[in-house]
């Protein structure tokens, strides 16, 4: 089986030169995504093919995945990946649609689409590469950046408190809300598979650091623990456990809520 999965994964790659910084967690996310698709294809025993997937992306470091992943799709606009993905699904409901986004992309530029996506509940999967920074534009703070973050744009340190997107997703009526750790490929793959299998809109927030501009997630593995939860009240507590700011405490990783 491993062999088949490897060969499918091989086909999911392209010949394009990868321009992410060496060691960028986006490589790990790409690997998780390839494994996810490969395993879904393999497990379906011929029912699902590579052509049955489509993606859309925003614009940013995360979005470069478009060039490195050989599935159909739209390399979209900053903040608009959700709309493109919803449209692709409306145009052909047989496609499995993945929307790749950045945190700046989703929580700043395209926030309206994020909130409404839960209500529209199109059967697509949103994957946010949350590196708590506008990286491709050289590291300005986004809505999930920690307080005090220093950048060329905020030499005195970021003043605002970060937004907690998991809480927001719950409030918006999300029916599949998960958080993944980019560094944990096995677990991220499991989460992504469940997200794609979920009927309706699924949202996976992947925390990653940006090696160049914001290494905020670098020393947090020890705070992380796994969850798989279907209880709404508990989901609200889980969402509160980490506020994207604190350096101590617990960070739940896994399915925070599935209805």
């Amino acid at each position: 089986m491993a062999n088949t999965i490897d060969s499918i994964k091989q086909k999911l790659g392209t010949k394009e030169t990868i321009t992410w910084c060496p060691g960028c967690p986006n490589f790990l996310i790409l690997e998780s995504v390839k494994r996810t698709i490969a395993e879904l294809i393999e497990e379906s025993k011929g029912k699902i093919k590579q052509e049955d997937f489509a993606m859309s992306t925003g614009i940013g470091c995360h979005a470069k995945i478009f060039d490195y992943l050989d599935i159909s799709g739209i390399y979209g606009l900053h903040g608009r990946t959700i709309s493109f993905a919803e449209g692709i699904k409306l145009g052909n409901e047989k496609l499995n649609v993945l929307a790749f986004a950045g945190d700046g992309d989703t929580y700043a530029e395209g926030m309206e689409h994020f909130i409404h996506a839960f209500r529209h509940n199109e059967d697509i999967t949103l994957i946010v590469h949350d590196n708590q920074s506008f990286s491709l534009t050289t590291g300005q703070p986004t809505p999930t950046t920690q307080q005090g973050y220093k950048s060329k744009a905020t030499p005195q340190g970021e003043k605002e408190k970060p937004l907690n997107p998991i809480k927001l997703a719950l409030a918006a009526g999300g029916k599949f809300i998960a958080r993944a750790n980019a560094r944990n490929i096995t677990q991220t793959t499991e989460i992504l598979k469940k997200a794609i299998k979920h009927k309706g809109f699924s949202y996976v927030e992947i925390v990653q650091d940006c090696l160049i501009f914001n290494k905020e997630m670098d020393n947090k593995d020890s705070m992380m623990y796994s969850v798989e939860n279907k209880d709404k009240a508990k989901a609200e507590k889980l969402a509160e456990e980490w506020d994207y700011n604190s350096k101590k405490g617990k960070i739940p990783i896994g399915i925070i809520y599935e209805e």
Binding site: A54, S56, I74, G76, L77, R80, S83, F84, A85, E86, G87, I88, K89, L90, G91, N92, L95, E112, H113, I115, H116, H120
Partner: peptide
């Protein structure tokens, strides 16, 4: 959809995957 930005991008997405919007 939620606004005109979503309107046009969704329509482009739909036309990409085979609709006539």
């Amino acid at each position: 959809p939620e606004n005109e930005i979503a309107v046009i991008n969704m329509a482009l997405g739909a036309n990409f995957s085979g609709a006539r919007a």
